[in-house]
Design a binder for these strands. Sequence first.
DNA 1: TCTGGGGTCCTAGGACCC
DNA 2: TCTGGGGTCCTAGGACCC
Length: 449
Amino acid sequence: MLIFALVDANSFYASCEISFRPDLAKRPVVVLSNNDGCIVAANQIAKDLANQHTQNYGSGGYASAKPTSMMFQPYFKVASFLERHNTAVFSSNYELYGDMSARMHRMLGEFAAAQEIYSIDESFLDLTGMTGLVGDLTAYAQMIKQKIHQGLGLPVAVGIGSSKTLAKLANHLAKKRVQFKGVLDLTAVSEDTLNALLKQVEIGDVWGVGRRYADKLVAMGIKSAYDLKVANIKTLRKQFGVIMERMVRELNGQACLTLEMVPPDKKQIVRSKSFGQPVHDLKKLEQAVATYAARAAEKLRQQHGVCQYLSVSIRTNPFKQDQPFYANHHAMGLVYPTDSTILITKLAKRLLKRIYQPGCAYHKAAVCLGEISVKGAMQLDVFAPDPQYSANPKSDALMSVMDKVNAKFGKGSLELASQGLKQKEQWAMRRAMCSPRYTTRIDEVMVVY
DNA sequence: TCTGGGGTCCTAGGACCC
DNA sequence: TCTGGGGTCCTAGGACCC
């Protein structure tokens, strides 16, 4: 039997801050998002406080699957309430959290042969076959928990199960029920006990069940994790697809998901941020977009990628009822995939100009790089869409075609030409450029596009 | 006054090809 | 009765995660 452990830090951002300020341990602590917009982390004391006073500020505008009444509240709505209760409030410090996260994951990696770093504050560990080495897994997990606390001052909970979904679920219970003292090993309990525990977990708290699925499942009479475990797998498969089938199997202890020890490269890199103040001016918008583009390009180069798709979006504040709402985005494919900051920022600015409307109070901008591949592979892909041309992708003939295009229409004209083209049209253009049949018709190709 | 910033996967249907 | 059939690519939309 496979055995997975999920180690998850409690209220990670808040705990990081508390770690350096032990005097805060007995006070409510919250951490705010970018521009101090809303609450993204709250320690247990703050959460309890909020639960007692939910009616004071309602459930908030964010549709979160599993809302804790405190999380994602706009800060301004709860600021005075928090102040009355002597809450410590922090702006987010992502460098600190990133550093603490790296330390925690490094430490956790020491406790198992295999580790998957699942998120900033969660690791899956492979504990399969460890009982012979370490004996009781609950005791082992308690030891892990204590080491992390001693080393970093971070409280963590450990859930153990025979599938990732069960480990997640065990972690959830370990955090919620004080009697487990932060550790629950579902592989060590009897079937009856396991089922009794699953009955106590709301369907929406199962990993992979968001609000939409939860609503639908409840309507079908599936209200708890146990209900899902024993539900008819074929019916669910038909109605929800393969994801739900997998969840049912995982709940039954059949591991369908494996540990991913090497994080895959990103398929898409996004940099988006709301502004502290409304921005009207194109120049200022350009600055922001150029910065985001440069950061995204940096990230792209870190994974040795090149992007083939670029999009820029801007919007006004959707919460401002008294102002007209405007949101738009524009995308382009790049005939030459690139990781160049200069080119990417330049093209991003060009896209921005297409969607910018004077007179709007902009609130947010974003840059997205997509269709990312490893450098060498993408070159081949782009220069040789047909196998018959792939023998020598950088053949003299091809290069001369490109030289010819650039000479005739100016450097960068290919990017310009491909703006707004559909994927298919781009391929057609590339094929046209690569194919000896078309080399004499470059002028036509460029004119057409 | 003041409302986050990232990501992934699956599916259905249409276009197109042979 | 039954009006071809199989395959791929692309896109949009819907769901989820932290």
